[in-house]
Design a protein around this nucleic acid. Structure first.
Length: 797
DNA sequence: TGGGCAGAAGTTTTT
DNA sequence: CTTCTGCCCA
């Protein structure tokens, strides 16, 4: 029996061996968080406190789920088939597939990814004749997803103003459309699953009886709905073991609610709060920097990282004249590090926003250094892949209009916009899917539509007994996609990707344990039957609730076996829920370029944090959020704690952005770091002497400014008082007198609408032209300063 | 039906 | 400056 507990430090040991009661593990960066989570599961099972079937472990990314699964099976010989380890969305999908009838969904419901959802919304709005200038589809998408993440259906959303009323009305219509088409978007997966458990007491009781041990990774990233779902599963008696770090909460902008940690502590009456503060990653100075920086944040649960490693090297700071020069310097340093024997893959260049990668990429290319940029187009998001998947979806579910609209005329088969419009009208008239409305379209248009319908029908018949990979290959060929790309000049890559899709199907079938010959659209009998003793681990299993539920009366069939998913449905879910790796670039051993967000969870021997300038990092836009600056600081904290041995911080006096040269001052974060850990490679200029005092009001984003002699900027500076000295700064004339009283079209007291913050009233105006700003008191978001050139306020009649 | 062009917009991102 | 979107024309 392996000694799971060897080499754990006292805090880790305490966490791993806690009794089965609610627990919150505050795990600092590099403190062995994942290890604790995995060892905890293994220990529970080894000690017979749990069987694999009574454990539910949830993560945010597929990557994390895979890692957990992999490391767990390496620790203990567990049959993972019966385990519920996955992402929130993956687990909810699994549950909804199993109980689709109770959830009010067809067995073949399809999942819309973000892009699919947007096109569904556009189609809806077009059909209803809604002005998409006044109601931008993207805003409606945000509105819908936001509502769902708050657990709100259309009739529960506050619709006090006319704008919201329209959105609510569209939300309702969107839901009807999705329901008719048998499609489900990402937040819907969670909300449906949540409602399923709320409304079906036997199901709820079943899962509550089953999942005695609920473990949550990255708890600080959960949103309200996810937390509610967890609470429901936990019920009155199950324990949640939550692991997270409030200091690494960097996803508030997409709904993450750090407050869940406090709520959890309170609502579950958490008695076990364990802090993992021993850091195994970074040298001392780097941790000192991180600790002191994050101490500037107010609402923290409180935590300080420590290390047994020595101070290590100081944090190197570099001030460049321009972004180009910053890149040149960084690449020189990288070269030096490589010469010292450091692997390229151990070097990362981090930045706040993607646009910043360009300058560094350029320099790396000319230096001939292989690099890899994270982010970008991913496998299942490629055009040709989405097309192929659309055919597969249509075979599975003919009502899926999103899939239908995507490929009805791709490859082109003489079905133009006119015809599609006719069809859409008919579909609306008869309240049916586009496919079902085909017989109602007459004439030539009708016959070309009919032949498309025949094509799909033929595919459906001929793939009846095919395995999943065969089906995919067949569809790629029969749809005409392969032929189309063969004829394209640059279709070679796309053809290869389509072949890769067939390979992905093969891999999926084998990894998921389907028989290679299992027909893609039939329920895998072998799986259904053999999966019954889901645990197969110890003699105790006989009494396990997971086993008994299969025969439990009162539950809807064929739901009980959670794995009752056809290979095709499984594969389509997989394609939607896991977009795949972003395109691999350059060689294996390449310098790593990514945003700070993308770097979370990773570590490198040497890290460059670039573009540390006011307006960029912290980003100007975060000034409008009440807690924006604190999140930026947490982001900086995440960035710093990626470094193991060497950390570089750099900024540039001027930077090309959006075709304009911007002049920024160095980030305030420099002033929040312990100065004794910093080693300035360029002379340190005193911020005060150099730039004049800094205003500390709400609109701190204005601390940077565009060069007035160019004056094209939306942000043209009208602030005087900057003491010009050297270089770029010398180009700054005093500019304060130029302020004119140009009419902004707004007045104090006016009611306005902002797409993100909703309704509010103007309480003050200042500046003019491109620089004009308004202070608005929003009903729900408090007072904010908004740049009129940016904010696009609409006057409410 | 598709290409060409003008105009807009441009933090962060997973599912 | 670049990238994407939507529109118009041949």
């Amino acid at each position: 029996m392996p000694d799971l507990l060897a080499n754990l430090n006292p805090e880790q040991l305490a966490a791993v061996t806690l009794p089965n009661e609610p627990a919150l593990i505050l795990a600092g960066a590099g403190s062995g968080k994942t290890r604790v989570l995995i060892t905890r599961i293994a220990w529970l099972i080894q000690q017979r406190f749990a069987t694999p079937a009574t454990v539910l472990a949830v993560t945010f990314t597929n990557k994390a789920a895979r890692e957990m699964m992999g490391r767990l099976t390496a620790l203990l010989p567990i049959d993972t088939r019966g385990m519920w380890i996955g992402t929130f969305h993956g687990l909810c999908n699994r549950m909804l597939r199993a109980h689709h009838r109770d959830a009010g969904l067809p067995a073949t419901f399809q999942i819309l990814d973000t892009a699919d959802q947007l096109s569904a919304i556009k189609r809806l709005m077009k059909g209803l004749g809604v002005d998409d200038e006044k109601y931008p589809p993207k805003n409606l998408q945000y509105f819908i997803n936001n509502a769902k993440e708050q657990g709100l259906r259309p009739d529960q959303v506050d619709a006090s103003d006319t704008f919201n009323q329209k959105f609510v009305e569209l939300y309702r219509a969107y839901e009807q459309q999705c329901q008719r088409e048998g499609v489900v978007d990402f937040p819907e997966l969670l909300l449906r699953c949540y409602e399923l458990l709320v409304h079906h007491a036997p199901l709820r009781a079943h899962y509550q009886a089953r999942f005695k041990h609920i473990l949550v990774d990255e708890f600080q990233d959960t949103n309200k709905l996810q937390y509610a779902w967890l609470k429901l599963l936990a019920g009155p008696s199950n324990a949640i073991f939550a692991v997270g770090d409030d200091d690494q909460s960097i996803y508030a902008f997409r709904g993450a609610n750090v407050g869940n940690m406090r709520d959890f502590e309170r609502e579950f009456n958490v008695r076990h709060l364990i802090k993992l503060e021993q850091n195994y990653r970074s040298h001392g100075y780097i941790l000192d920097a991180a600790n002191q920086l994050i101490a500037n944040n107010a609402r923290r649960l409180g935590k300080n990282l420590r290390t047994d490693a020595g101070h290590g090297e100081p944090v190197r700071v570099y001030e460049a004249a321009t972004d180009t020069q910053e890149a040149a310097w960084a690449v020189e340093e990288i070269r030096a590090l490589m010469n010292q024997g450091l692997a390229r893959g151990e070097i990362a260049v981090l930045y706040r926003s993607n646009a910043q990668s360009r300058a560094i990429e350029h320099t790396l290319v000319s230096a001939g250094i292989p690099y890899r940029v994270y982010g970008g187009l991913r496998f299942f998001e490629r055009q040709e892949i989405k097309h192929a998947l659309a055919y597969l979806r249509l075979i599975d579910n003919g009502n899926d209009d999103t899939a239908f609209a995507r490929v009805v005329n791709f490859p082109t088969r003489g079905i133009g916009a006119r015809t599609i419009e006719q069809l859409a009208d008919a579909a609306r008239l008869y309240n049916c899917s586009m496919a079902a409305a085909i017989p109602y379209v007459t004439g030539k248009a009708g016959s070309s539509l009919a032949s498309f319908a025949n094509l799909i029908a033929k595919m459906r018949v001929e793939t009846e007994r095919m395995s999943l990979p065969e089906t995919v290959e067949y569809v790629v060929r029969t749809s005409g996609l392969a032929e189309f790309y063969e004829g394209e000049r640059e279709g070679q890559d796309r053809l290869e990707n389509l072949q890769e899709l067939v390979n992905a199907a093969t891999a999926f079938v084998s990894e998921e344990g389907y028989g290679l010959d299992t027909p893609a659209r039939s329920i895998p009998l072998s799986r259904g039957a053999s999966a019954a003793p889901e645990i197969g681990f110890s003699p105790d299993d006989a009494g396990d609730p997971a086993t008994t539920v299969l025969d439990a009366p009162g539950l809807d069939e064929p739901a009980q076996n959670p794995d009752l998913m056809t290979p095709l449905a499984g594969f389509l879910s997989h394609a939607s829920l896991e977009a795949g790796e972003s395109q691999a670039q350059a060689g294996e051993d390449a310098v790593q370029l990514m945003t700070v967000h993308a770097a979370k969870g990773l570590e490198f021997t040497a890290v460059f944090i670039t573009g540390l300038e006011e307006g960029l990092f912290p980003h100007e836009n975060s000034a409008i959020e009440p807690e924006g600056l604190e999140e930026e600081r947490r982001l900086m904290y995440v960035a710093i704690t990626r470094a193991k041995e060497r950390l570089y911080l750099s900024f540039a006096q001027s930077r090309m952005l959006h075709g304009q040269t911007r002049y920024n001052i160095r980030s305030r974060f420099f002033d929040e770091l312990p100065q004794e850990t910093l080693k300035w490679l360029t002379p340190k200029a005193e911020a005060g002497a150099r730039w004049g005092g800094r205003s500390d009001n709400a609109g701190w984003g204005r601390d940077w400014f565009a060069r007035p002699d160019r004056q094209q900027g939306r942000y043209g500076g009208s602030y005087g008082g900057y003491a010009a000295t050297e270089g770029a700064a010398a180009a700054l004339p005093a500019f304060a007198n130029e302020q004119r009283e140009a009419d902004t079209g707004f007045r104090v007291g006016q009611q306005v609408f902002h797409t993100k913050f909703g309704e509010g009233a103007i309480t003050a105006l200042e500046g003019s032209g491109a620089d004009a700003r308004a202070q608005v008191r929003f009903k729900r978001h408090g007072e904010k300063w908004l740049a009129l050139a940016v904010a696009k306020l609409q006057v409410v009649e």
